[in-house]
Amino acid sequence: MYEPRIIGYLCTYCSYPGADLAGISRIKYPPNIDIIRVLCSGRVSPELILRTFREGADGVLVGGCHFGDCHFINGNHRTAKRIPILKKILEYAGIEPQRLRLEWISASEGERFAEVVEEFTETIRGLPPIREVLG
């Protein structure tokens, strides 16, 4: 039974505490996701995302703060522009753009985090394993 592997890059000040809240509140979400905490979602670069796919991640979730809440003022603005254009590039390369997802999750949105992970895991489960795509 194919269990997709998902990597989540969550920012320190909003989405990681959000995920933490989901854990503390005992809200269940699929175990397929492995979370890596980064200082800001703006730190997540295209080369990092591509290397993550190459290492075997079937899906990559990037979690950042809502606009106006970023601890670094406009780090999330960079992410907001970078991820959509990277998704388009993946589309042109023939790699499914649904494998990369950007979500704004605040520190109090524990339930929402669980929902997003649930949804995303199902999306990725419907796609072929990344090894079959990248070779």
Binding site: R54, L86, I95
Partner: peptide, 11 residues
């Protein structure tokens, strides 16, 4: 290794 070099350059 596909697709790092070229898609990073494209980005």
């Amino acid at each position: 290794p596909f697709p790092s070099f070229h898609l990073v350059r494209a980005m």
